[in-house]
């Protein structure tokens, strides 16, 4: 059996009386592309923040990269990469300055950062932007750079929160090429998206509704189970029950 790098056991989070995440249980294997889907407000971001060690669970437990998210959140953070929905590089710093800054936060040596940055820019065909201000770059390039930045300290797991929102269809697919390559190299990908064609590119997909996981399987099996022609059909069926029929 494949090594489990994320395990979530009845993970829950309440805000006052409101149960944002309700006893969520699942596992993710090493090298898997795991799609984490759900409607707005279903609790995806809250669950993801707990798994990244950014928010303490109310009850239940989870381990990420072998560390407990409640008791060892700092070790979790060191061993994962995270790309947030909101673009988080400094617009008024150059690409190189951003990488030196973030690499420094992770305790990487300057020489190692520059070597790895040069290699990653080469793979993206973006070597010429090393000294460009981040704010001057097109959104699609920024998204690819954010991905590289999240991979800078060579984490075994990477969390991507809606990485392709608003970018053009070619860039969106180039971004998925990066995800495929990383998974091929054994890196585990945990990704949220509102594009249902992208759900098809995942090895397995979970669909969250009102804080709980309503379905979890490969896209192919989900389509069969819900008798749907596409993942969009599956999502429409599950995410708001009968109201859309």
């Amino acid at each position: 059996m494949k090594e489990k790098v994320i395990t979530s056991n009845k993970l829950s989070r309440k805000f006052g009386d409101f149960v944002a995440v309700d006893e969520v249980t699942f596992e993710v294997s090493k090298g898997e592309i795991f799609g984490f889907l759900g409607a707005n407000g279903a609790g995806k971001t809250t669950a993801m923040r707990m798994l990244c060690g950014l928010l303490a669970p109310s009850s239940g437990s989870a381990t990420v990269a072998g560390y407990d998210v409640s008791t060892q959140p700092e070790m979790v953070k060191k061993n994962i990469g995270y790309m947030s929905q909101k673009f988080s590089m400094y617009e008024d710093l150059t690409v190189k300055e951003n990488f030196l800054f973030y690499g420094g936060v992770y305790g990487l040596k300057r020489k190692a950062i520059i070597e790895r940055l040069s290699m990653m820019l080469g793979l993206l065909n973006l070597s010429h932007v090393m000294n460009s201000l981040v704010g001057s770059l097109p959104l699609g390039w920024k998204q690819k750079l954010s991905f590289s930045l999240a991979m800078l300290h060579q984490p075994g797991i990477i969390f991507l929160d809606e990485p392709t929102g608003g970018v053009d269809p070619i860039t969106r697919r180039q971004f998925w090429d990066l995800i495929y390559e990383a998974a091929y190299d054994g890196i585990t990908i945990f990704v949220t998206t509102h594009y249902m064609d992208e759900a098809e590119y995942c090895d397995r997909v979970s669909i969250m509704v009102d804080g709980s996981i309503k379905a979890l399987d490969s896209p192919e099996n989900l389509r069969k189970t819900y008798n749907a022609a596409s993942m969009d059909g599956v999502f429409q069926e599950l995410a708001r029950g009968t109201s859309t029929k």
Partner: peptide
């Protein structure tokens, strides 16, 4: 862009 970042059900 009224539906950017909006889930597929709400978009529909």
């Amino acid at each position: 862009e009224p539906t950017t970042g909006v889930d597929p059900v709400s978009r529909k």
